[in-house]
Design a protein around this nucleic acid. Sequence first.
DNA 1: TGATATTAAATCGTGCGCGATTTAATTTAT
DNA 2: ATAAATTAAATCGCGCACGATTTAATATCA
Lengths: 152, 152
Amino acid sequence: MADAPKEDLLQLEKLLCFSVYSASHAFNRIYKPLLDELGLTYPQYLVMVSLWQEDNQSVRSIGEKMYLESSTLTPLLKRLEAADLVSRKRDPKDERSVRVSLTEAGAALRTKAEKIPTCILEATGLDLETAKRLHRDLRSMRNHLEASAVKG
Amino acid sequence: MADAPKEDLLQLEKLLCFSVYSASHAFNRIYKPLLDELGLTYPQYLVMVSLWQEDNQSVRSIGEKMYLESSTLTPLLKRLEAADLVSRKRDPKDERSVRVSLTEAGAALRTKAEKIPTCILEATGLDLETAKRLHRDLRSMRNHLEASAVKG
DNA sequence: TGATATTAAATCGTGCGCGATTTAATTTAT
DNA sequence: ATAAATTAAATCGCGCACGATTTAATATCA
């Protein structure tokens, strides 16, 4: 455990950011065949998860939970609308915001989606305890990163 | 620690994949201002890291290390070439493959980049031990995910 | 009240990231 | 030696993801 020379920190596999980057793409690839059956992309699936948890959210609310801008969400939500999974309506109380609600088909899709998370956990090769620890460490890290991104 | 009901698994913050997804974007946002000074995007930076570690690689070799397809790398490498950071030449031994090499400017950029990883580690808010554990858990998971993606 | 500021979505341009296909070079098997 | 199979990049279309800007609605304040 001698301290690593400086150049060691500039090796791809030694960068924590790279392990996150590549893990994220790995998840994407694992999910793809499962989500293809539902007609969803990976980010669309995450939006649907958020709506299954809480229906009738504003674009802003979804964006805060997912850490995404309206410039990302608006086109994505329009595609979900075109697929008849959600509806988008201006809030009568405040015409600035758009409320996103599940259609019948969108709500029904939940049943098909419910088996996915356990399928995925298996593919990670992690025991439940490690998975929980990893989950906790990642959220802690993300919250710190988001906080220092805001501060600049 | 009672076993969670099934619907609990379909909450955004309870999905391991989402913690990876959002952490990946958080890294992107943290790196951006630092990389802007180098004139690099985040994926371009990762390619440069790989080349600083081992110069004169084929597109295929870079793709294997980064888990990326040529359809992603070719345009990215052309942008690095346009920025005079790398050169792309067909391998005379095998004209199918393209060798990517650092230019003088590309090699020189390494010095400016060396201070970045330690800046980032600080922003994660992780102590060194947790960071190492997280790194190890992530790579293990990614390797499992990649393996089961191949198997189908 | 009317001007100003703030807020929420939408729009636009750039750069990934991937699957499917194409092109060209090399390898293999006949 | 030639046909068939394999391999490496490149190309194309689609969908994120973001920063910057725009548009429209609401809130604030003079």
